[in-house]
Amino acid sequence: MEKLLSSLLSHEDNRLRLFDMGRRVSKLSIDLFTKVEQNLVPYPMPFLHHAWIGMLMWNPKKKDENLIWFLKFPLDEQGFLVQAARDDIVNRLLQNALMPDINKEDALKDNPFSFTPDAEKMAIFHAQAALILGQPASQYYEDVQQYLSVQRPHEYWENLGLQGIADFIVRLDQGTNELCLCTNFDKLPPPLMQSISRLLEHSQPSYTLLGALSRHLSGLLEQESSSVDLIAALVRAISNTTLTQPRDELIVKVLSSPYAIKTEVLLAIATRNLTSLYQPEILQVFLEKLAICEAGQQAFTRILSDLMFLPEMRALILKAFRHNEQSDALRQAIGAMLGQQRSASH
Rank of each mutant, 00 (worst) to 15 (best):
G175T: 00
H346Q: 13
Y278C: 04
E65S: 07
F33S: 07
G335P: 00
A166K: 10
L133G: 05
L283G: 02
P100S: 00
K253M: 08
L40S: 10
Q38E: 14
R15Y: 04
P153R: 04
L287N: 03
F33Y: 14
L243V: 00
F286T: 06
L230N: 10
M1I: 03
I292K: 07
N14M: 12
S256P: 01
N240H: 15
K63N: 09
S203G: 05
E294W: 06
F286W: 10
R171C: 09
G335T: 02
A85T: 02
P189E: 10
E294N: 13
L133A: 05
F185C: 08
P117A: 08
A97T: 01
V170Y: 12
S218F: 05
N103R: 01
R314M: 13
V285R: 14
L290K: 05
S256H: 14
R247Y: 01
G164K: 12
P280K: 09
T183I: 04
E142G: 01
S149A: 11
S276T: 00
Q204Y: 05
G134D: 02
L160A: 07
A315P: 01
I169P: 11
F47R: 00
L213I: 08
L81G: 01
C180N: 15
Q151E: 14
G161H: 15
A127Q: 08
S26A: 15
E37K: 03
H154A: 04
M122H: 10
A295Q: 06
F73L: 14
N184K: 03
E142W: 04
E105K: 06
E105A: 11
R272G: 07
D186H: 05
H323C: 10
R322A: 13
Q135S: 04
F33W: 14
V265H: 11
P153C: 12
A119Q: 09
I30C: 04
L221N: 09
R247I: 00
D143T: 01
R342G: 03
N184Y: 14
F168C: 02
A212T: 03
N184S: 06
L199N: 05
